[in-house]
Every structure is written in structure tokens, then in C-alpha cells.
Design a binder for these strands. Structure first.
Length: 899
RNA sequence: GGGCGCUUAGCUCAGUUGGUUAGAGCAUUACCUUCACACGGUAGGGGUCACUGGUCCGAGUCCAGUAGCGCCCACCA
């Protein structure tokens, strides 16, 4: 016997290990059609948040569904080594010991990070198990494991040999205090109350024809960073700015240095801002850098790593701190008559997220991937439909980005990550050898130099590591064993679906497209499913600093994993972001409870009736209309859910299975079954549709469905619902043998509406729900009457009636009634109501009806309406009018009754 | 500045190609502890579908404009 309450915790703790250890998550390549998905690997330092829960629920629903449909499935799990995030975690721990990474040295530090990974890196994969993910843990991968690292080295080498990787100057965010480059998202922008300094640059030669704010002698620029002035190599104006067309191409003199620099025209310049003229300092500003690239400008780096000025800034300033230099240099400008005036100005300044120092844009040598040649085929793949975005609108955003793609800076000045496989001859940074292994690099060096006695000691590996995304973009195939030719790769690549949130389309999805096409010759997936971001009840992004995060594990503890999953699925639309608060998870919990209780009800009755829930339905006959109805409802549910999932409409599928279970089975059929004439048949049918319902629900709520399936005896020990077949609708043969048709389906809906009407009548006349009443049903026609008579016993019970009389007699019925699709249901009042009040109410209703009838008559008399509306619509309008006239007639009789 | 969205019940959202009375959950009101379930049942209240105009026999749905909100990218030297 099932327990009175469902113990979700116990069920979850029981089933997950069984599933995993039985190999239910694992398929081998070979048989059947493949369905494969790679998980977006979470950071190894990460802990599970709502975004993961949503992302993985969607994937697990799809994977479990496909698996039950008979696909050979692979959902490949793993984690990302997350270069800077992981390095920071370990450095933080070191700081507690009073050490820096430099104290350990590179090798020991990296070993220390591995140590950390071995000890704590399993947190998130453990948490993913709590969600119920059916990921194939036997194939778990890590972006920094041996295989993935091999793939990285191979890819780097190949791209280098193809001329798609190069080394060049680039502006990075540099923290002078930490001595490291920072990624864009590691820079925190803060409001800064600063100044705009207006500086005069004398024009070389004549300035005739120059208009506006200029005079003949100089032009004026506005800058927030005067100390970078010695690094200027041009000034620029907007090409459409007519004020300045005359000076484009001329030269100006850079104050304090006497150097002549050109005046350029570039779209980057805003006409309205400042003076409309910008100083260009390519080595110290990201935008200026790009302008410099476009115009072939010299890049003059005037700063040292620690934020002090170097010799190129000029002898006077060399050695000064950048902010001290700003002060001194401004004084010098003023003294030289170059400073026009100063304005207050508020802008955003980047700070190091770790030490809060003002971040410097700094020119440095970095490694790059040429993206244009890689991007073009990736654009084409989406254009020609071989890869599809779901929803489709994301393809526009993808194209927009891909068509404006910039080269990808892939080197990072960190220690934790894939070290760049480039080796230099010691003391000669220009002689470099790129190879997958050090040995190969040495071989190359020997050949190139003609010196066969070179050893590893003569080579030096590039100290930088690769951007974390440089391993992630290979994820769909590096995880399957590439560059080896493996059976997995052969069978499961390309994967079918990729499910991710919108925020990493550029970082990850677009790059995987490029790598997949370039190295495998095929895009890495067919469908890119993009879902929204999880937000809090106020619509804010969930974040630690806001403290508005909901912890999925806390939700699982309070409501169960099934509740978390189902609620997320139900409230999630692919179209937009999802607002979540704790109360949302009650939906899922309540649903699990409902299922449990319905199962108990079935079990109790099955036992009493000696019913085998697994017995096939094939032999049954003589079905009542309610029985036909639930069978057809099951049929519809199977088809609907299959259809919605195949279109990635996760929410619609959840809604459909919820409605089928709760409304159709529990509210509709179970209530019928309680009073069915042939209980054994009624419950055999319930057992059959219940089993279908459990399997339909399983992708959303794996634990409760597995538990209930075993409790009820649908499955024996060792079997699992995970691998049961996903239910299909009934066959045409079954349908016709049982007499399932839309007319019967509609009849039962209408019959239930009639019961509702009767209950409403009791309510209107304030008759106790407990009281037995007399009911008369005036059926629409003889055929309907026959159907209703067949169900008269269940009607009596549902209506709590001492008698239900079915008639087609159009004789006058002086009782209150409600018109439904099957006819009118009348309630005998037995003289129990307040006549005066009723009389008044009826008069009111009559008045309303009268108005409606007049309106409808006018509509039908309108020639335009009858000529242009489709016949069906006109017919409907006529019917409505007729029905309301009948209603009016009944009310008039009723009015007499109360008068 | 460029791009993409959103506005439907008190709240969170569905609403497929235009077509009878615009749906669900939560919240709310009344009644019900009836032997599956109060994490429940029954019945009800609550919507000028942001606004304006257009197309059409017919618009929540299509078109144009207005207002408000949000996100992404680039960020103003």
C-alpha cells in the first residue's frame, strides 16, 4: 500500500543512484538513430544556480523524451576549467596563507590549482545530479583534461599553419597594481567626477578656410586624459563634419613635443561631443587603437607595466606616476599657452575588480585568430538552413555580430590554462616554432637553425595561456575524442540540439559553429535552442551582490527536484526571460502530490477489484461515453505533447500534460469512475491512461513518475520508466473498435457542462449541495436523449439528484434552467425559493436578453454582414439568436411562475 | 548611437495561419473537512488585450504612428 504522503526526498535519493549505476544514462554508438546534446559546461568553480537549473531542465526534458522515443541518446556532461575564475579562487586561498602565486612559482602553482580541482571541482557535478539530469557521467569531460588539451594544441597548430593565428599588438585592460591583463568582464565601471581639458594644437602652415571654433593658428581638442598626450599620433574629425573638411589631411603640432601629426577623418568621431576633434593615442585607448589600425598610425607606448611613464613620454615625465604626470603636464600646457580651458565632466572609469586600481588600456603583444575566414561559412550554415535558431529571431542577432566580427585575442597572462604551444629560441623572441608538442617544436627548431645539437634547454615556451573559450569552442567534438577517430565521434557528431541562454551566443555558440565547420567539416549541431535568463520577481538579474538569488538546492530541499523542474518548465517561454520567485515552485509540488494521490486512489481500487494494471485493454468493449472520452483525451495528449516537444515548446508540453492529468483524469474521469456502472472496466481504462500519463510526464518529473510506476506495479524491479516507450496515441483500429470519435468527445464535454450548469443553478437558488433535487433535461434531439439516458445513473450521482428525467418533449417547463449544447437542464425548486427576489432578478435578465436579441436581429438584417461573412459565421449568429429566443421564452414562463 | 524585444485579469504569463463567449496558475469571494488529495473540491468575481489611426464583413492577432518598459552591442575623447 502506498504511503499517505509522497516522500520526494526519499524517492530522489533512491532512484538517482539506481539510474546512474544501472547505466540507464548510457548508450553505446551503433544501434538506432542518434540524438546527442553536449551540456554547456559550467565553470568548475561554479555552484548551481537557477540559470543552470532552467537550462538543464530543458535539456533533460528533450533528452529523456528522445530516449523514450527510442533514440540512441547521448547527453554529454562536463565542466570548464575557467581560467581566470579558477586561478582567482586558488590565489585567494593562497593569500590567506600570506602567499602570492609568484612565491610558489608557476609549476607549483598550477599543481596547486589541480589539487583544488580534485578536491572541490566536483561540487557542481554533484549538484547537477540533484536535478535529476540524465547525463552520461561515464563520458564526463573537463576542458583541461588530457584529451581536450590535445585538441587545443592541435587546433592552435593547425590554425597557425593555415595563417589564421598571428601575433600582434593589442590593447588590453591592464591592472598596474596586479601586473596582469584583465578580461572585459573583470573591469568594473564606476562613475568618475573628472574634467575635460581643452587643449590647443597649432596648425602647421595656413589654416585659411577653417571655420567654427577655430582660429587661424590652432585647432582645439578635448580630452579626459591629458597625460597620454605624448603618445598622440594624430587628431581626428568626423568625415561628415563640414566645419573641418578643410583641415583634413593637414598637420598639427603636438604641444610640448613639437612633433607634427596628421589630421584624419574617421566615423568614430562624434561631431557633437567636445570640440568635434579628438586626439588619437593608439597605444592607450581601445578606440584610438582601432582608428590607428585603420589609418596605419604609429603606436607609441608611453607607460611602463606599473603605471609610471617611460622615456617615450619625454625625459621630464619619465618615471612619474600616471596621475602625477597628468598634473605636471597640465601645468606645462598652461604655461605654454596650450590649455584653453577646463570643464567638469562625469564619465565612467574602469577599475580592477580585485584591487580597485584604475585600469589602464595598454598596448601589448597578443595572439589573435583571424575570424573573417572562419565566420563566413558559419554564417552560410545558418543562412542555408542547415543550422536553425529556435526561436528564429536570434539568427538576426547572430548575423549582425558575425558580419561585424573582429579578430579574437586568445592569449591571457595567466598561469591556469592551456599554455600556448609556441616556443622561442632563447634570447630571440622573433624565432618561434609552433607545434603540438615540445618535442616537435624542438625538431622544427633544429631543422630551421641547422643546429642538430639544440636541446629543450635552448627553447622557451610562450608564457601566456589561451582564453578559456579557446577550449570551449571545440567542446562538441573534443569531448568525443577528436583528434582521434573515435566511434563516438563518428556516431554522435554532429550533435542534434544545443540549448543555452542568450548571453553566450557570441562567446560560445558562434565560435563553436566556426570550429565545428572548420575542423570537422560539419556544423556542430542542427538546432540552437535559446532560452531566456532567470530573473527575480522584480525582473532583476539574479546575482550574488544583489542577494536576490534563489538557490536551486534550497528549492529542491523545500519542494523537490521534480517540483523545481516542472515549475521551471511551466513558466518558461523561449520567447522571453523568466521571472521566478519561491512561490512558483508550489505549482510543481502540488502537482506531484496530486499525482501521488490519484495513484493511491487507483491502487486502492485496483486491489479491491483484483485488477492487474498492466493488463492490455485490447479486449474491452461496450464503453460508456466517459470512457471513450478519457481514451480520446489520452490520445490527444500523446499527440499534442509529442508535437510540442518536437517544436521545442517545452512550456506547452508541460501545460498539456498538466491539463491531461489534472483536468481530464482527476477532475473528469476519476469522478466518473467512482460511480461507474462497470467498475472493473472503468478502472482498467484508468490504469491504461494513467500509465500513459506517467510516461508523458516522466521527462518533466522523473522521480515521482518512476516511484509511482513501481508502486502501482507498472514496472518490476530492475525496470525503469526512463527506458519505457514514450506513449503514442491509439491506433485507428483501436479507435474504431472502441468507438472513439470527436462527436462522443464533444458530447461528454457538453454533458459535464450540463452538470456544471446544474450546480450553478443550485448556487443561484441557494439550494444546499447536500440536498437531493429533481432534474429534468430537455434534450436537443432524440439521438442526444438516447445518449443521455445511457448515462442517467452517473448523471444522477454527479448532480446529486433523486431523479433525472430526460425528455425531448417541448412541452412547457415551468422551472429554472440553463441552456447548454445538449439541451436545457432544469432544476425543480420544490417551492424552496424567495419568489419576490427571483421575480426581480428574472426581470433584469429578460431586459438584458431583449437587448441582445435586438442587436443580433439587426446584425442579421445587415446585408453587408450576410453577404460577406462566411456562411458558417452567419449560421452561428442565427443559431445564437434562436437560442436566446428560446431562453427568453423560458424566462418569460419562469417569470409567470414567480409572479 | 546601432540592434532586438516587451505592454493581455491584482500578480506571473499563454493565446499557433485574423473567425462563435480572450485562457492558465497564483491571489481573491462563498460553500464544502464527502471514504485519493485542504499541497484538495465545487461555484463565483475580476480584462475598453498600452494608446491612436488604418486594412477587413470581422483585429488581442496584420500595417503605420505615439507613449512607457527592458535587454544586448558600442560606448562620448
Amino acid at each position: 500500500m502506498m504511503d499517505k504522503r509522497y516522500d520526494a526526498k526519499a524517492a530522489e535519493a533512491k532512484w538517482y543512484p539506481i539510474w546512474e549505476q544501472s547505466g540507464f544514462f548510457h548508450d553505446e554508438p551503433g544501434k538506432g538513430s542518434p540524438y546527442s546534446v553536449v551540456i554547456p559546461p559550467p565553470n568548475v568553480t561554479g555552484i548551481l544556480h537557477m540559470g543552470h537549473a532552467l537550462n538543464q531542465t530543458i535539456q533533460d526534458v528533450l533528452v529523456r523524451w528522445r530516449r523514450m522515443c527510442g533514440f540512441n541518446t547521448l547527453w554529454l556532461p562536463g565542466t570548464d576549467h575557467a581560467g581566470i575564475a579558477t586561478q582567482n579562487v586558488v590565489e585567494k586561498a593562497l593569500r590567506k596563507e600570506g602567499k602570492r602565486r609568484q612565491d610558489l612559482g608557476r609549476e607549483a602553482f598550477v599543481e596547486r590549482v589541480w589539487e583544488w580541482k580534485r578536491q572541490y571541482g566536483g561540487t557542481i557535478v554533484h549538484q547537477q545530479r540533484m536535478l535529476g539530469n540524465s547525463t552520461d557521467w561515464r563520458r564526463e569531460r573537463f576542458t583541461f583534461d588530457e584529451g581536450c588539451s590535445k585538441a587545443v594544441a592541435k587546433v592552435f597548430t593547425q590554425l597557425y599553419n593555415e595563417g589564421l593565428i598571428y601575433k600582434g599588438n593589442y590593447i588590453v585592460n591592464w591592472c598596474p597594481r596586479c601586473g596582469t591583463a584583465l578580461a572585459n568582464d573583470e573591469v568594473e565601471h564606476e562613475a568618475n567626477h573628472g574634467h575635460l581639458w581643452y587643449v590647443r594644437y597649432p596648425v602647421v602652415g595656413s589654416a585659411a578656410g577653417v571655420k567654427g571654433e577655430l582660429n587661424k593658428d590652432y585647432i582645439m581638442v578635448a580630452t579626459t586624459r591629458p597625460e597620454t598626450l605624448p603618445g598622440d599620433t594624430a587628431v581626428a574629425v568626423n568625415p561628415k563634419d563640414e566645419r573641418f573638411t578643410a583641415i583634413v589631411g593637414k598637420k598639427v603640432i603636438l604641444p610640448l613635443t613639437g612633433r607634427e601629426i596628421p589630421v584624419l577623418a574617421d566615423d568614430y568621431v562624434e561631431k557633437e561631443f567636445g570640440t568635434g576633434i579628438v586626439k588619437i593615442t593608439p597605444a592607450h585607448d581601445p578606440n584610438d587603437f582601432l582608428v590607428g589600425k585603420r589609418h596605419g598610425l604609429e603606436e607609441i607606448n608611453i607607460m611602463n607595466d606599473d603605471g609610471t611613464m617611460n622615456d617615450l613620454a619625454g625625459a621630464k615625465y619619465a618615471g612619474m606616476d600616471r596621475f602625477e604626470c597628468r598634473k605636471v603636464l597640465v601645468e606645462d600646457l598652461e604655461a605654454g599657452g596650450f590649455l584653453d580651458h577646463i570643464e567638469d565632466y562625469d564619465n565612467q572609469v574602469g577599475h580592477c575588480y580585485r584591487c580597485h586600481e584604475v585600469v589602464e588600456s595598454r598596448l601589448s603583444k597578443q595572439w589573435f585568430v583571424k575570424m573573417k575566414p572562419l565566420a563566413e561559412p558559419a554564417v552560410e550554415a545558418v543562412k542555408n538552413g542547415s543550422v536553425r535558431f529556435v526561436p528564429d529571431r536570434w539568427s538576426k542577432i547572430y548575423f549582425n555580430w558575425m558580419n561585424n566580427i573582429q579578430d579574437w585575442c586568445i592569449s591571457r597572462q595567466l598561469w591556469w590554462g592551456h599554455r600556448i604551444p609556441a616556443y622561442y629560441l632563447k634570447g630571440d623572441a622573433e624565432r618561434l616554432f609552433v607545434a603540438e608538442t615540445a618535442e616537435e617544436a624542438l625538431e622544427k627548431a633544429r631543422k630551421a637553425t641547422g643546429n642538430a645539437s639544440l636541446t629543450m634547454a635552448d627553447l622557451e615556451q610562450d608564457p601566456d595561456v589561451l582564453d578559456t573559450w579557446f577550449s570551449s569552442w571545440l567542446w562538441p567534438f573534443s569531448t568525443m575524442g577528436w583528434p582521434e577517430k573515435t566511434a563516438d565521434l563518428d556516431y554522435y557528431y554532429p550533435t542534434t540540439d544545443l540549448v543555452t541562454a542568450q548571453d553566450i551566443i557570441f562567446f560560445w555558440v558562434a565560435r563553436m559553429m566556426m570550429a565545428g565547420i572548420h575542423f570537422m567539416g560539419k556544423p556542430p549541431f542542427s538546432n540552437i535552442v535559446i532560452h531566456g535568463i532567470v530573473r527575480d520577481a522584480q525582473g532583476r538579474k539574479m546575482s550574488k551582490s544583489l542577494g536576490n538569488s534563489l538557490d536551486p538546492l534550497e528549492i529542491i530541499g523545500a519542494y523537490s527536484a521534480d517540483a523545481l523542474r516542472f515549475s521551471l518548465a511551466l513558466i518558461t517561454s523561449l520567447e522571453c526571460d523568466t521571472k521566478v520567485d519561491k512561490s512558483k515552485f508550489e505549482i510543481g509540488r502540488n502537482f506531484a502530490t496530486k499525482i501521488w494521490n490519484a495513484a493511491r486512489f487507483l491502487q486502492m481500487n485496483a486491489e479491491e477489484l483484483g485488477l492487474d494494471v498492466r493488463a492490455p485493454l485490447a479486449g474491452i468493449s461496450g464503453l460508456s461515453s466517459d470512457e471513450k472520452h478519457i481514451l480520446l483525451a489520452a490520445d490527444k495528449a500523446c499527440r499534442k505533447i509529442d508535437d510540442t516537444l518536437s517544436r521545442y515548446r517545452i512550456q506547452d508540453g508541460a501545460l498539456a500534460v498538466y491539463d491531461f492529468f489534472w483536468t481530464q483524469i482527476c477532475d473528469g474521469y476519476v469522478e466518473y469512475a467512482k460511480d461507474a456502472a462497470d467498475k472493473k472496466r472503468a478502472f482498467a481504462i484508468l490504469a491504461d491512461v494513467f500509465w500513459k500519463a506517467l510516461r508523458l510526464l516522466h521527462p518533466y518529473m522523473p522521480f515521482v513518475t518512476e516511484e509511482v510506476a513501481h508502486q502501482l506495479g507498472y514496472l518490476a524491479d530492475g525496470e525503469t520508466i526512463m527506458r519505457a516507450s514514450f506513449p503514442k496515441g491509439y491506433t485507428d483500429e483501436e479507435k474504431s473498435a472502441w468507438g472513439l470519435d470527436e462527436a462522443t468527445y464533444a458530447f461528454v464535454d457538453a454533458k459535464r457542462a450540463m452538470i456544471t450548469d446544474l450546480r450553478a443553478l443550485r448556487g443561484e437558488y441557494k439550494i444546499s449541495p447536500a440536498a437531493f433535487v429533481k432534474v429534468t433535461v430537455q434534450s436537443r434531439d432524440e439521438e442526444t436523449a438516447a445518449l443521455l439516458r445511457a448515462d442517467v445513473e452517473t448523471l444522477k450521482k454527479a448532480m446529486r439528484a433523486e431523479s433525472v428525467e430526460i425528455t425531448t418533449d417541448k412541452a412547457e417547463l415551468a422551472m429554472p434552467g440553463k441552456l447548454g449544447a445538449l439541451g436545457t437542464v432544469y432544476l425543480s425548486l420544490d417551492g424552496l425559493v424567495d419568489k419576490a427576489a427571483e421575480s426581480k432578478r428574472i426581470a433584469g435578465e429578460l431586459k438584458k436578453l431583449e437587448g441582445f436579441i435586438k442587436g443580433a436581429e439587426a446584425k442579421l438584417a445587415n446585408k453587408q454582414f450576410t453577404d460577406h461573412a462566411p456562411a458558417q459565421i452567419v449560421e452561428t449568429a442565427r443559431k445564437q439568436l434562436e437560442e436566446n429566443r428560446q431562453k427568453q421564452a423560458q424566462l418569460q414562463k419562469l417569470a409567470k411562475l414567480f409572479s
